[in-house]
Amino acid sequence: MNIFRLLGDFSHLGAIIILLLKIWKTRSCAGVSGKSVLLYAIVFTCRYLDLFTHFVSLYNSVMKIIYLVSTYFTLFLIYRKFKATYDRNHDTFRIEFLILPSAVLALLWNHEYSVLEILWTFSIYLESVAVLPQLFMVSKTGEAETITSHYLFALGIYRFLYILNWIYRYYTENFIDWISVVAGVVQTVLYCDFFYLYITKVLKGKKLSLPA
């Protein structure tokens, strides 16, 4: 464990909690992409199956369980409890275009041809693009609430912090996992445009709105 990974894990946790609290407090999931949350639920489910087979540490197991439970609870809030507020007309990204290529790529490029390993690899590829329905929704409506922007920032910066962690681990432990690195870089690059808008607008107290 190093500082980059710890900060990454907590910003990821922060993103999940911000989203959950925003929906819970406002009793509304307007502006939130249920499809992105659904993709994250698939990602965590496929990746954390190793909870049953492989113990890393108490920290690792507890975080996995928190990520899983809070993401499924958010999904329940969006699609059941507050479904009347769900903006489904703007959440129209076709997620099969993300799921199928991720599955095919996981079958082609993985560390080992086993069920758990392919599911892990699939989750890494799917996670790298899982934000697209949410970004698509923001671009379609042309704006995002400030709290949604904070959620997206925390969600994006987490993988960037992981990249710093992988560089650190490369030099200190001689450890590198190319699948994670390449997918993590793709994931971070997808946020660049958003990061720019976040820094130039949201941090200066303005609402995130896209130029017409």
Binding site: D9, D50, H54, S57, N60, Y67, W120, I176, D177
Partner: peptide, 10 residues
């Protein structure tokens, strides 16, 4: 460089 497939990250 050792390429491990032990997944110890989240």
């Amino acid at each position: 460089v050792t390429v491990r497939i032990e997944h110890d990250e989240l």
